[in-house]
Amino acid sequence: MRQSPSIVPLDRLDRDVYLVLEDLGARAGCAWRETDEQDTDLETVLRHLLSGQYTYPVRIVAFNAIEGWSRDATSDVADAVAQRATDTDAEISSALHAFIEANATKRFDLQLTLPLRGAA
């Protein structure tokens, strides 16, 4: 019996996918964020972290279903987002700063933008 070819192009599946576990607060708990397929590459996840799309990231998992592997990518992503913030002088939230502090394997000197009392 002949096997039918897949209707899903293999190159679409043969890539690294990154998913973000986010803390949604005491009432909701943690959940894997729903996201579009095209927004699961590393570059997009880094951009979304820096732009505040993920408010309280907890864990980031990477996998490649075709190659048959998965791994915890939290430290790698924390290092990458910290480096990107440093290189671009990006302002980061206190929650993202806490994520970097808790998970980065390298030391980064990030400056948080803090509101000044009485400044208008």
Rank of each mutant, 00 (worst) to 15 (best):
S75E: 12
F108A: 07
S6I: 01
I100Y: 03
Q38K: 13
H48Q: 14
L13H: 03
T105M: 11
P5V: 10
E91T: 12
A62Q: 14
P115H: 04
L10W: 05
I7Q: 14
R2Q: 13
K106Y: 13
V77E: 07
G68M: 01
P5Y: 02
D89K: 14
S6G: 09
G52F: 02
A62P: 00
R12D: 11
P57C: 08
R117S: 07
D36C: 03
V17Y: 10
P115F: 02
L46T: 01
T40S: 10
L49D: 07
L110T: 03
E67V: 00
S93G: 09
Y56P: 00
L49A: 04
D16I: 00
W69Y: 10
L46C: 13
Y18L: 02
T113P: 00
A98E: 15
A95I: 00
E43I: 02
R12W: 12
L46Y: 04
T55R: 15
Q53I: 00
F99V: 00
A119G: 02
L96K: 06
T105N: 11
T105V: 07
T74K: 05
L46R: 10
S75P: 01
D14M: 05
V8L: 14
F108Y: 15
N103P: 06
A26G: 11
S93R: 10
L21V: 10
T113N: 13
T74P: 01
R117T: 02
R2W: 11
E43S: 15
A104G: 04
R71M: 13
S75C: 10
A26I: 05
S4N: 13
L19M: 12
D11W: 10
D11R: 13
Y18G: 04
A119E: 14
L13W: 06
L110C: 04
Y18Q: 05
R2P: 15
L116C: 03
L24C: 12
L19N: 11
E34H: 07
G29S: 02
R2K: 15
A104F: 09
D76M: 09
I66L: 08
P9Q: 09
R71W: 02
E37F: 11
R47K: 12
R84W: 08
N103Q: 10
R71Y: 09
I92W: 10
A73K: 02
R84V: 01
R117P: 04
T55H: 12
L24F: 11
S6V: 03
G118P: 02
D79H: 06
C30F: 08
V81I: 09
A73V: 02
A120H: 09
